[in-house]
Amino acid sequence: MIKEIIVVEGKSDTVAIRNAVQAETIETGGSAINNEIIERIRLARERRGVIIFTDPDHAGERLRKIISERVPGCKHAFLNREEALGKRNIGVENADPEAIRKALEQLKTEILDAEPQIGWDDLLAAGLINHPDAAARRMKMGKLLRIGYANGKQFYKRCHIFQISREEFMVAWKKLDEEGLL
């Protein structure tokens, strides 16, 4: 049984989570999250901890950002788009149980008051900002680091709040370079 409460977008996500692990969920009802749900998430974080597990699409990332800003200190689970691809959409509900378990084993925890280990110069050197293929590179690095896709500013912020170490970053960068993905 997972101690933390997992925040998902809808009922189908809850079903997928429960097919993979024993856990309780809070459903946001999609991206139109209201104050009542935010308060439930805040209470859950204070009492048991919270894992935000939204779809790897624009709406899911927007929802993750809203929750993270209004309820700081949450943990995050990320699926790659390929793991969440269904016939008609991209979502947690499409992921197989093994992918869900893997995402929950590789949680990222927000740490807001630590010094960043990855700087803008690192993102620039890796071609993750100010490069013609920066978006594609960030998508691939986000997949390897299991922090999801984000624009340059959000990628930098995720590296900081999830305390991506210089070693983790360099290993991922080297892997992309070896695979010819950069």
Results as ranks from 00 to 15, higher is better:
103 A>E: 05
71 V>I: 08
131 H>L: 00
159 C>E: 04
167 E>I: 15
6 I>M: 03
168 E>V: 09
63 L>T: 15
110 E>W: 09
49 G>F: 01
158 R>L: 11
16 A>R: 10
71 V>E: 00
156 Y>C: 10
106 Q>G: 05
162 F>Q: 07
132 P>Y: 06
98 E>R: 12
105 E>S: 14
136 A>H: 11
111 I>D: 03
13 D>Y: 02
54 T>F: 08
25 T>F: 02
18 R>C: 14
60 G>A: 08
1 M>T: 14
180 G>E: 01
98 E>H: 08
91 G>D: 08
135 A>D: 11
105 E>L: 14
87 K>N: 10
43 L>K: 15
108 K>S: 10
65 K>I: 09
31 S>G: 14
138 R>P: 01
80 N>Q: 12
142 G>I: 07
72 P>G: 04
95 A>E: 01
1 M>F: 11
89 N>Q: 14
81 R>C: 03
157 K>F: 15
87 K>Y: 04
173 W>A: 15
152 G>S: 10
22 Q>F: 05
38 I>S: 02
23 A>S: 08
124 L>A: 11
8 V>E: 02
82 E>V: 13
101 R>T: 05
113 D>E: 14
17 I>Q: 06
35 N>F: 00
172 A>L: 06
115 E>H: 06
164 I>L: 03
167 E>W: 10
85 L>P: 00
42 R>C: 01
163 Q>E: 10
96 D>M: 05
70 R>F: 01
127 G>R: 02
20 A>K: 05
23 A>G: 06
19 N>G: 09
